[in-house]
């Protein structure tokens, strides 16, 4: 009898728990159905049409918006700029973040102070960072002033030269995001037991050997995470470009994200094409994330 009552009560709790769970999760379910899944399907539908936000008729085009992408000169330029940008920034920010984290992962005085100061670039907005770097890259700005210290005066206009505009934006990006990923690496480093390093030291392994034989292999899952987040972020770079260069000079800083923006909000009637570009971008990001997972996150044997 007592067991039966307890069983029924347990069942009642279960049912009420399930009901509460569904109700509590509703705010996300609505967000998911409208802002994520619904939006995704609608974007795909747009990508199959010659879609114009203002037009009354939007004829169906099938996959033409996709199949014509390889002939779209702007898209080709944007994609090659974006890929160049993403590869350089992802590699550099990951490397700098790792080195900075290793430097900070020591019992040393002033560690907290250095960690806080180093993280500062990551809390500033893209607009503020862009303002600062507009000045740094100005013909008489900070960068040229520092370079002039080396000898002859330099008055290069970094953002107006097709050869240096994109690398200048890469520099800005690495400068802001490396400190964020430094924190991620630092958390990973603290999970590596000290005893492994101590054992290696007893065996006569120097700092370099310990870094490449212990730190890097044990951090592989974190390195994958940082590389994946780097790919996802850099392939969508927009803010700095819209604020500092608007894709110029001569499309040398035109990225896929900025091209999508231009197609949606500047050139009427290009919404369908823009959606096709966005899907292409999504597929590229997905494939590269999976590839980096395959090479970085593979199981390692000891």
């Amino acid at each position: 009898m007592a067991v039966a009552v307890a069983g029924r009560r347990r069942g009642g709790v279960r049912a009420s728990e399930a009901r509460a769970g569904v109700v509590f999760v509703l705010p996300y379910l609505v967000f998911f159905l409208v802002m994520q899944a619904g939006a995704l399907l609608l974007a795909f539908w747009f990508s199959l049409h010659r879609y114009d936000l203002l037009a009354l008729e939007n004829p169906f085009r099938g996959l033409a918006n996709y199949t014509r992408l390889p002939e779209n000169e702007d898209f080709k330029i944007a994609l090659s700029n974006t890929a160049y940008y993403a590869v350089v920034v992802t590699i550099l920010q990951t490397a700098f973040a790792l080195v900075m984290a290793v430097l900070l992962d020591a019992r040393i005085r002033g560690r907290g102070f250095f960690r806080s100061t180093w993280y500062t670039p990551s809390i500033a907005s893209t607009v503020v960072i862009s303002m600062i770097f507009l000045w740094i890259y100005h013909p008489t700005g900070l960068l040229n002033s520092v370079l002039s210290l080396l000898g002859t005066p330099v008055q290069h206009n970094w953002l107006q030269d097709t050869r240096t505009a994109l690398p200048a934006l890469m520099g800005l990006n690495v400068w802001t995001t490396a400190p964020t990923f430094m924190i991620v690496f630092l958390a990973g480093l603290q999970d590596i037991p000290r005893s492994i390093y101590e054992a290696a030291e007893v065996d006569g392994a120097g700092p370099m050997r310990r870094f490449f034989s212990i730190t890097i292999p044990l951090l592989r899952p974190i390195i994958f995470l940082v590389v994946a987040l780097g790919i996802i972020g850099t392939f969508q770079v927009f803010d700095q470009i819209s604020i500092m260069t608007q894709g110029g000079p001569l499309k040398s800083t035109l990225t896929v994200a900025y091209l999508i923006y231009q197609n949606v909000f500047r050139d009427e009637g290009q919404v369908g094409v823009a959606c096709a570009m966005a899907f292409a971008l999504g597929v590229i990001i997905y494939i590269l994330t999976m590839l980096s997972r395959r090479y970085l996150d593979a199981k390692i044997d000891y």
Partner: peptide
């Protein structure tokens, strides 16, 4: 649903931009 939510974090915001704007 939780797995789907983690998966959606990889979707570029550019894909859903236009439908959100229209909505």
């Amino acid at each position: 649903l939780f797995a789907i939510m983690l998966g959606t974090m990889v979707i570029p915001s550019w894909v859903t931009l236009v439908p959100k704007y229209v909505l």
